[in-house]
Design a protein around this nucleic acid. Sequence first.
DNA 1: CTTGACTTGTTATTACATAACATGAGAAGA
DNA 2: TCTTCTCATGTTATGTAATAACAAGTCAAG
Lengths: 127, 127
Amino acid sequence: MTPVRRRTLEILLETHRAMGAYEVLDRLAEDGFGRQPPVAYRALEFLVEHGLAHRLQRLNAFAACLHPGEEHAPVFLICRKCDKVAETSAPAVRNTLHDAAGEMGFTVERATIEALGLCPVCAEGRE
Amino acid sequence: MTPVRRRTLEILLETHRAMGAYEVLDRLAEDGFGRQPPVAYRALEFLVEHGLAHRLQRLNAFAACLHPGEEHAPVFLICRKCDKVAETSAPAVRNTLHDAAGEMGFTVERATIEALGLCPVCAEGRE
DNA sequence: CTTGACTTGTTATTACATAACATGAGAAGA
DNA sequence: TCTTCTCATGTTATGTAATAACAAGTCAAG
Ligand SMILES: [Zn+2]
Ligand SMILES: [Zn+2]
Ligand SMILES: [Zn+2]
Ligand SMILES: [Zn+2]
């Protein structure tokens, strides 16, 4: 854990939402770190590899992990109205996926499960 | 269904694999259609909206749907070795996801489920 | 024959991501 | 101590994916 990496994680935690790499980069630059894309991408890559952050394919964005160290299988719920992202651990979904893939002889190593829809708050507000 | 859209679908079907938008665009241009990104993106968007093709977030790519019209819930199995993409319909996975999200009050409208791993052929060939 | 919806085409720009190279700090070994 | 190796950080430059904004043509409805 080096300064850039630590700061990158802090940024993700502070904002508490999904952030694009360039958005993270701007913050890092403000704090005196490099202002070039690789600076952010490398730090984010490190965090993802070490289970401290996740990448959201649908959003081209990153978010801090809410259960670091716990060795979990995250599922993301993205609200299309307020853009909030909830990370939930749904082993049942993963298991079902592994089973379904297994029937076809496919070995799942990593899986991306991201749902787009409405969070409780936005759903209540009449669509 | 217009010429560009039909041709775009044909291209996806012919190659029988996931293709990037710019790759599709090159083919379209060869056939006398426009050579600008929007040409491909619009046609692909149309196909996706009408359930004739799918978008693979992990690959920034598109693939023809193998069960068009059937109103299904696709799950993609992407082989990291041979790059083949298998589309399978796994209602169980979707249901589990909907249930898990429902417990948190989240309403799922669309879901991206993509697994990365090894296909039967590549798994056999000793990792 | 005019209006309006829609499709296709263009130019230009924005957003996202990585390749390739240079430098400096620190650990490991002579 | 003085190399040497590894790794983190920084840079420049480029590659790749996606969209904004506008122009022109088709065609059916009125
Ligand atoms: Zn997590
Ligand atoms: Zn919401
Ligand atoms: Zn399909
Ligand atoms: Zn394979």
